[in-house]
Design a protein around this nucleic acid. Sequence first.
RNA 1: GCGGGAGUCGUCAAGCGGUCAAGACCUCGGAUUGUGGUUCCGAUAUGCGUGGGUUCGAAUCCCAUCUCCCGCCCCA
Length: 413
Amino acid sequence: MSEILKVLKGTKDILPQDVNMWHLVEQKADEIFSKYGFKEIRTPIIEVTELFSRGVGDTTDIVNKEMYTFEKSDRSITLRPENTAGVVRAYIENGMSRLSAPVKLWYKGPMFRYERPQAGRQRQFHQVGVEMFGIKQPTADAEVILMATNFLKSLGLNDLEVEINSLGCPKCREEFKNRLKEVLKPYLSELCEDCQKRYEKNPLRLLDCKVESCKKIFEKPEIQEVVNSDFICEECEEHYTAVKLYLDRMGVKYIENKQLVRGLDYYNRTVFEIKSNNLGSQNAVCGGGRYDGLVGQLGGEPTPAIGFAMGMERLISLIPKLEPKKLDGYIVSEHPVDAFLFAEELRHEGLNVEFDLTTKKFSKQIEKAAKVAKYALILGEDEIANHCVSIKNLEKGTQITVDRIDCIKMLEL
RNA sequence: GCGGGAGUCGUCAAGCGGUCAAGACCUCGGAUUGUGGUUCCGAUAUGCGUGGGUUCGAAUCCCAUCUCCCGCCCCA
C-alpha cells in the first residue's frame, strides 16, 4: 500500500458504522451538560504557540515534546494539545468575565499530541470537556465532579472509579515541594534518571514513579512521613473537606489518592481522575481539576475556575456497540422513474428511503431491501396502475397493499 | 524517546524454503422470467506491510524500513 493510501501514524478514520457511537457521546454530553447550565463553545484548532507554553506550562511533556508546531508568516502556531488554554483565551478575549458568574462552557473536538501511539492513545484524539469560571466555592468542584459521573452513567458506564486529591494552593504546595526535595536530597543520586529530572521540574510527580529502586527509597520512613503529611494549609484543607462533604451528600463514591498529581501545571486544590479497569494501561477516561491561577496568568482578571476533559475514543471503547440503523423503506421496482418520484415523496415526509439505482432483477432488489431496510415498498405494474404500493414487513414477512397516500402512516406504525 | 510481540484478500485465518498461496465470512453473479433472510453453484490475492539481499527456487531465511499491538514515559 503506497504512502498516500495510509492514515498518518496515530490517526484514525471514524467509519460510518461507528459514527452512531460518536453521536451518542456527543448527544449525551449536550443533554447532560445542558441540565447543569453549560453552553457549548467551539474554539479554533490552531492557536498561537505561546498560549500553550504559558497556559499548559513549559515544564510539561505536552508542551516540551508533544506539540505540533509550525511557523506561518513569522508566527509560531500550534495544533491544540488540549482545550483548556483555548477556552480560557476565548473567555478572556470575549469579555466573559463581565457575564454573571458562573460561566459554564463545554466543548468537544480533536486534540493533537505527538506521542507514541498505543491502546487508548493516538496523535489525533478527541475530547469532550467542560470549564466553569468564576466560582471559588467548593460547590463548583462538587458539581463538576457529580456532573462527570452522571454523564458517564448516562452512557451506561458504571464500574468506574473516581479518585480525588488536593494539591493545595501555590503557597502550601511550594512548601511541600521544598520539604519533599529536602528529605529526598540525600538519595538524589540513587534515583532513576527520570526522577532526577522530576526532582527539579516537578517534584510532586516523583511520588508515582514505577521504578522499583525508586519505590524502595520512597518507602523510607522519613520520606513517607513527608508524603503522608497533610501539607495543605488551613484554607485549602477547609475547601477540600467541603468538596468531599458535598460529594458524600450527593452520593458520589470516590477514593482519596494522595499520589494523584495531574501532569499539567495549571492545577491547584482539587484534582480528580475517573478510571476504568477495562482500558489497559491508559486507564483514565476523565481528568480534571481546579485552576484558579490560569485566567490571571494568561492576562485576564484573576478568576477561579475548574474543569475536566474526557477522552472520547476511550469512552467509546467502553460502550457496547450499537446496531446500525436501518432505512425505513427500500423501494423495489423495475420502473426507475416511479421509484425515484415515490422515494422523493417519502423523503419529503421525513423518512429514510432508497431505491435501486441500477434497476436489478426483482428478487435481487428484495434481497437488498432485506439487508438495509425495515420495509420493502413494492411498485410493480399493478401498483403503478392503481397508484398503490405493496408494503412488505421484512422482519415478519407480512405484506399488505395500500393506497400510496396511506403509505406513510403504515410505515410509522 | 526506550524495551517486547506481530503484519498473508474488505474481515477472520491456514501455510513456516520446492506444484497453481487452503478455508470461512462479507461482496458480486447464477440456480429462481414479481417476493429476500435457508439451500446449491460460480467469481474474487501474478499477491503474502514496503524495499533490498541469500537461494536453482522465498509468504516462508537475513537486513533495513513502515505500521499496529503490549509495556515504560506521559496523559484523555
